[in-house]
Amino acid sequence: MSRQASRASESKKMNSELFTLTYGALVTQLCKDYENDEEVNKQLDKMGYNIGVRLIEDFLARSSVGRCHDFRETADVIAKVAFKMYLGITPSVTNWSPAGDEFSLILESNPLVDFVELPDNHSGLVYSNLLCGVLRGALEMVQMAVDVKFAQDTLRGDNVTEIRMKFIKRIEENLPAGEE
């Protein structure tokens, strides 16, 4: 990972490390608190959801993105605006299902896993599972029920990190937001 940082982006980079390390501390704490990887994955998803339902407001306020007309537009906004704004990366949107209700986000790099080496005894851990919860929570707030999961993970030996997103249904506006 080459980091040719100028003074200006230096502090931004440092801040990114703060997030990465904090996330790492959270994951390892969860690993200590819960007996198995599956439970940790669930917790990460839950916590991600809690973050997502609040993050969406921050996003809508700062991005001046209007209402998305279809799932394709949503995918583009997620990849080109949201990921860029919060993680400084722009995943590519690919592998659309014929029905147009499912797609993949391919991440060449994932700031959450900088410096991380997964030990052998955590082969079932989906380290970045927080992201799935965040996406799910955020989209629920804009009336979209989605299913999000990791299809590939560089930490587990794959070449890229792939997040698969599937549109389930539209949520009626008058249902209150659930908090777990």
Binding site: N15, L18, F19, T22, M47, I51, L55, M85
Partner: peptide, 18 residues
């Protein structure tokens, strides 16, 4: 390059979890 807001959200969630 993670945004500062992301750390704040994560930090709050850490407290909530604890």
């Amino acid at each position: 390059m993670a945004d500062e807001a992301l750390f704040h959200f994560l930090h709050n969630e850490l407290i909530h979890y604890a």
